[in-house]
């Protein structure tokens, strides 16, 4: 087997011997990246668990103050976007250029809706003085417990903020893919970028599937 670099193509970079090898490497790479993401969010989930255990009552009150409807809407929006992402990957496997673009744009739009709703929710928080800081105040919580309530909102903003940051990155990736698809970069033989972007998008979706019940739902019954 000659080892000199072959002519490099997108589907076969010079360090690989076969296209299948390159696809395996890219997919495995994305899975490992997602594992690092789980560990990254894991630290936040741990902090949430510790403080929820320490201040269950205050966390219940704070949790109940979140906008349940908006959170639920966003969950549905995100689940739909995962579905359109699957359709985009499927279209890529079949080499249907127009369908890829259509479904990527749909996914992008749904992602945009999610971020829009999120922004609206944060704006409400701002007006209600639920932003951690000197003006923070949460009704229904004693003055000496405001710090604990603030802790809930700090975690809320850190976790949903980090999630939104991942959504923004995902939107960037989708935009990039749409332009690349328009240039005809992806064929039925080479659609790895669409595939791994799909993995990423589903991961971001799954993070929300954990965030929503943890932040919005878990203490509703205590009210």
């Amino acid at each position: 087997m000659a080892s000199q670099a072959h002519v490099e193509t997108l589907a076969l970079r010079e360090q690989f011997d076969t296209e299948a090898q390159q696809k395996d490497a890219s997919t495995l790479g994305m899975w490992i990246f997602l594992i690092t993401e789980i560990m990254f969010f894991g630290g936040m989930f741990l902090a949430y668990t510790v403080y929820r255990g320490a201040f269950p009552m205050v966390f219940a009150v704070a949790s109940s103050s979140l906008a349940l409807i908006l959170g639920a809407v966003n969950t549905v929006v995100l689940l739909c976007s995962s579905f359109t992402m699957v359709l985009a990957v499927r279209a890529a496997q079949l080499g249907q250029q127009r369908a890829i673009i259509l479904f990527l744009i749909l996914t992008l739009l749904l992602g945009g809706v999610f971020l829009g709703v999120k922004a609206y929710e944060w704006k409400d928080k701002f007006e209600e003085h639920h932003i951690p800081g000197p003006t923070f105040h949460l009704e229904g919580v004693a003055t000496d417990q405001q710090g604990h309530a603030q802790l809930f909102f700090s975690l809320y903003f850190a976790m949903t903020g980090l999630h939104a940051l991942h959504m923004v990155i995902g939107v960037g990736i989708l935009t990039f893919l749409i332009f690349q698809t328009r240039k005809g970069r992806y064929t039925a033989d080479y659609m790895t970028p669409v595939d791994v972007a799909g993995l990423y998008w589903h991961f971001v979706d799954i993070i929300w599937i954990f965030l929503f019940p943890l932040l919005y739902l878990i203490d509703r019954h205590m009210k």
Partner: peptide, 11 residues
């Protein structure tokens, strides 16, 4: 934000 500050309930 108080997450490591005992005065605000952090640890």
């Amino acid at each position: 934000i108080g997450i490591f500050d005992p005065v605000l309930g952090g640890d």
